[in-house]
Design a protein around this nucleic acid. Structure first.
Lengths: 351, 351
DNA sequence: CTGAAAGCGCTTACAG
DNA sequence: CTGAAAGCGCTTACAG
């Protein structure tokens, strides 16, 4: 590997000058700057990133902190159906990081995962900041991050601290739009599988639905609200349980598209047509939606905006010690073929 | 941050001794070792990873090199439907890396992406090795990696070099099993959408099908072989084109499960029942398969074995300068509901 | 078995 | 504007 020493010799200057020329900042005469750059080019020099991190006491690296339940594997969650949504967001995270020249790091967590250890392991790696994705509020890492002195941006979790803020979708407005769409189609009895109870997303989504109904002078039937896990299988199971119990609803709001796929399967097994008998709406707008039978009406989360702004916000916090203000990203209803006019309820209320 | 200096003082020894006690290797008296460890515990010391990388001239980091077409985003590909398969593998990569205490790095590629630059950027980061996933053989990065002196393991690409080897699935045996299954159900005319032409996976999969047919004294109808892109949309388009042209096949082999989803949609639009009219087999065994209508018969790739063994192999190469031998992972047919007895061909050959 | 010293490749006050 | 020197936090021959 070429070192700055060699560049200095070649250009007839000191290493200090090479460093200055490279980092632009200081005053270097045009002539010397040119000599240095020529030397850099002809030797194919690139500064040692590790050495820079050492002296700067900080690496140009953003650590990814992904998913709670995982115990040691970020991708464990990504691989599960309910996480497909995050992937697309990570793509934009990666692009934005690359654009600003930050590496992304998935730290291995050694020595057991006591929360204090977690922060320390980030510190020993000199990470510049951390992007926390899908961490639940109760995750010990989330707690540690909120308290620590490391710039942190949470995505889809409302954690806030002196050095921590968040970026989230407008969940409630999304389900509000979805519910209004159902209302306009004549639906009055709506079942909701909002996802895991108590979570931010599930709670806000439920809220949006309630608000739209309340605005129309209606109320949600509490017994038609069925929290369950976010994945396809759990949603499938819960839908089967619901269908075994009652059928007096004409529409169903799912917490995610992947949940909707499980629900679709349950409806199919019960020979219930979509949207003929029941309308179904997902959430997220994963690309798979288009290929479902029928193609799924859903609420789109702007994953690009979420990913990019999260990184931008984080870098601002890192480089400018900027204030950590939360960011809310709008959502939009995408109408496809899984929603239609409500069948007459009276006719089948107690079939 | 606590430094080894402080630990040394507390334990009444030199920094050299702290380092020795920590790295186990050298001869340190039991008594001193204990004193040092006590000091480490009470101070909450953990060595600075960056400083270690600096002096060792190598970081404990594995770089991920993901996907060709991407231009600057690994997750860009992961987010596309055809890549869902890789996610699950990455989960095991991550677990294995964590188990052996290596960090995973997604390097940002700066200054344009000339191949030489790519290697250099890995060198300046002092990465210990690289795991290349889904890189096509023609990717400039693949070429650079094969020639470079950095330990590299390719997954699903047969690149080989003095410091580079690969781990791959037994694609051809997978489609051989699938084809034998179809033959046993009476199918004789089989259409194949093997994926992108000329790729390793597509070529081997096609080969397995041909071999099984040849063994039964049959041949593939070249016009029923339809290469196309790996994603859901491309498969959908290609299936529509095929159906518009001819229907004299009773079974269809897809290059991946996500492709099968697109094909399923095309069949549905043509009111062709699965498996009543046509049997369909996917490849990969993504978890979504179970929720398709009908649940998809497919060939399972052992993603855990691929991910784990790839990392193990890489670490062996890094730490023991071990010989770089290729690894082939077996595949297995998983029969679900999308395959059934062949309809009588004669009756509908030229409907 | 243990310590003093050198060195990994940079950057940054401090002088000039 | 530029150089000599110190220092970032470790590890590792080299002595003893």
């Amino acid at each position: 590997m070429v070192t700055s020493e060699q560049v200095a010799r070649r250009a007839g200057v000191s290493r200090a000058t090479v460093s200055r020329a490279l980092n632009g900042s200081a005053h270097v005469s045009e002539e010397v700057r040119k000599r240095v750059h020529d030397a850099i080019i002809s030797l194919g020099y690139e500064p040692d990133v590790i050495a820079q991190s050492m002296v700067r006491q900080r690496s140009r690296t953003i650590a990814l902190s992904l998913f709670y339940e995982t115990q040691g594997s970020a991708f464990a969650q990504l691989g599960q159906t309910q996480r497909y949504f995050y992937l697309d967001m990570l793509k934009h995270v990666e692009q934005e990081a690359a654009a600003t020249n930050y590496d992304l790091l998935l730290p291995s967590r050694p020595y057991g995962s006591a929360p204090g250890n977690y922060i320390r392991s980030l510190q020993t790696r000199r990470v510049a900041g951390v992007l926390a994705l899908g961490l639940s509020q109760s995750d010990p890492r989330a707690h540690a991050l909120v308290g620590a002195d490391i710039p942190t941006v949470f995505i889809d979790s409302m954690a806030k601290g002196p050095r921590a803020t968040y970026v989230k979708s407008d969940h409630s407005d999304g389900t509000r739009q979805a519910t209004e769409h159902l209302l306009s189609l004549g639906h009055r009895r709506i079942a909701v599988l909002p996802g895991r109870a108590m979570g931010l997303a599930a709670t806000e989504r439920l809220l949006g639905c309630q608000q739209a109904l309340a605005y129309a002078g209606l109320a949600l039937d509490a017994e038609l609200v069925r929290p369950c896990g976010w994945n396809t299988e759990d949603a499938y199971q819960e839908a089967v349980a619901l269908l075994a119990e009652r059928r007096d609803f004409t529409a169903l709001l799912a917490g995610s598209d992947l949940m909707a796929i499980g629900i679709l399967r349950a409806l199919h097994e019960y020979a219930i047509r979509v949207p003929g008998d029941v309308s179904l709406i997902g959430f997220d707008d994963v690309d798979l939606c288009r290929y479902m039978e029928p193609p799924l009406t859903t609420v789109r989360q702007d994953r690009e905006a979420m990913g990019r702004r999260a990184v931008q916000q984080l870098i601002t916090m890192i480089e400018e010690q900027g204030e950590a203000s939360p960011i809310v990203i709008p959502t939009h209803l995408v109408v496809r073929a899984s929603t239609g006019p409500a069948r007459s309820c009276a006719a089948e209320a107690h079939e």
